[in-house]
Simulated assay, not measured.
Amino acid sequence: MTSKTTGSTPPDNLTPQRQAMPRVNQVTAADITASLKAGFSDFLARPFMSGFFGLFYAVFGLLFVWSLVWLGKIWMIIPAIVGFPLVAPFAAAGLYEMSRRLEKAESFGWSEILTVMTNQSKREMGWMAFVTLFIFWVWVYQIRLLLAIILKDASFSDFDGFLNAVFFTPQGWTFLVIGTCVGALLSAVLFAVTVVAMPLLLDRETNFVSAMLTSIRVVTQNPVVMLSWAAIISVTMLLSLVPAFLGLIFTLPILGHTTWHLYRRAVSPAGG
């Protein structure tokens, strides 16, 4: 006697379909040049709206540094300034949306751009923000640990004393070398997992793990070009911090728009 088991096999249309990973392209130095030109063009198309994001980022940076002085956390000023660019990819989400809409010739206003993060809540942008802020927290914690180990007897009661301990003592030089290596490693990790992940999440339906894996594949398949782009971002951002963060008003928007166009060249369109 044979028995039938009903309902053991779901209908084909109810079987979960595995989402295909985006296809990664080879990019060259010419792609970076073309993306920079496109990014500058996007900035000129909406200079005030683009500049707003740079101004907001700069003001936030100044307030952050001022709060550290007010709280007496002098030792955190330099690590915070150096690590501040780490959160730029998250801050540039509105710029990616502007470039996306400009590319498609779609009209948009302040409301569409300023609410981009809340509108993308279902695309796990919040998880990418968590990853970014977590790595920034690890950076600050590591610096605090290194200060305690290497410069334990130094006085950080004022900014001049901190600068003297870091730049004019053998222990300070050791701290700078090790701190630079730690910072470079964390920056490389964050760059690899976010360089196209944020634009990808904004552009199509996918989860943040797939977005990060795609970003890592872009970097590993184009190491020289992407490391060159990382160097351009790092140098530009750090130089922009020198005149009281004001350079960020221009450089952050251009770099943000450029990142969108580089993403479009590095990752094939959905279904492409």
Score class of each variant (00 low, 15 high):
Ala211Asp: 00
Phe156Asn: 04
Gln17Trp: 06
Thr251Gln: 03
Asp160Ile: 15
Thr258Asn: 04
Leu145Trp: 09
Phe245Asp: 07
Thr169Gln: 04
Phe52Arg: 05
Val87Trp: 05
Trp139Tyr: 14
Phe175Gly: 08
Arg204Gly: 00
Val235Thr: 09
Pro47Lys: 05
Gly51Lys: 10
Ala29Lys: 08
Ala92His: 10
Leu114Ile: 11
Ala266Lys: 03
Ile143Gly: 12
Phe159Glu: 01
Pro253Met: 03
Gly179Ile: 02
Phe90Gly: 10
Thr115Lys: 08
Ile143Tyr: 14
Asn13Lys: 04
Ser234Ala: 15
Val140Gln: 14
Ile135Tyr: 06
Thr194Met: 03
Ala92Asp: 13
Gly271Ala: 01
Leu63Asn: 09
Val267Gln: 00
Ala29Arg: 11
Val69Tyr: 10
Ala129Arg: 06
Thr220Cys: 10
Gly256Tyr: 00
Met125Leu: 14
Thr214Phe: 00
Gly94Asp: 03
Phe136Cys: 08
Ile74Met: 12
Leu102Val: 07
Lys73Gly: 12
His261Met: 02
Arg264Ser: 01
Thr169Ala: 02
Met125His: 09
Asp12Thr: 06
Gly183Ser: 08
Thr206Tyr: 03
Asp203Gly: 13
Val138Trp: 04
Arg100Met: 13
Leu62Cys: 13
Leu102Ile: 12
His257Phe: 11
Trp127His: 07
Val65Asp: 04
Trp70Asp: 13
Asp42Trp: 09
Gly272His: 03
Thr236Leu: 14
Val267His: 01
Val166Trp: 05
Leu213Trp: 10
Thr259Leu: 07
Tyr96Asp: 03
Asp153His: 10
Trp127Cys: 07
Gly272Pro: 10
Phe84Cys: 01
Lys104His: 10
Ala165Ser: 13
Thr6Met: 12
Ala29Trp: 14
Asn13Tyr: 11
Met21Cys: 06
Lys152Gly: 15
Phe191Arg: 05
Leu201Met: 05
Leu190Gln: 01
Asp203Phe: 02
Val225Asn: 03
Pro199Ala: 00
Phe56Leu: 11
Asp42Ile: 07
Ala80Phe: 09
Leu186Cys: 05
Ser268His: 04
Ile77Cys: 06
Thr236Trp: 07
Ala165Val: 02
His257Met: 05
Gln26Ala: 12
Met198Leu: 15
Leu146Tyr: 03
Asp42Val: 09
Leu248Cys: 11
Gly61Phe: 05
Ile233Val: 15
Pro170Arg: 05
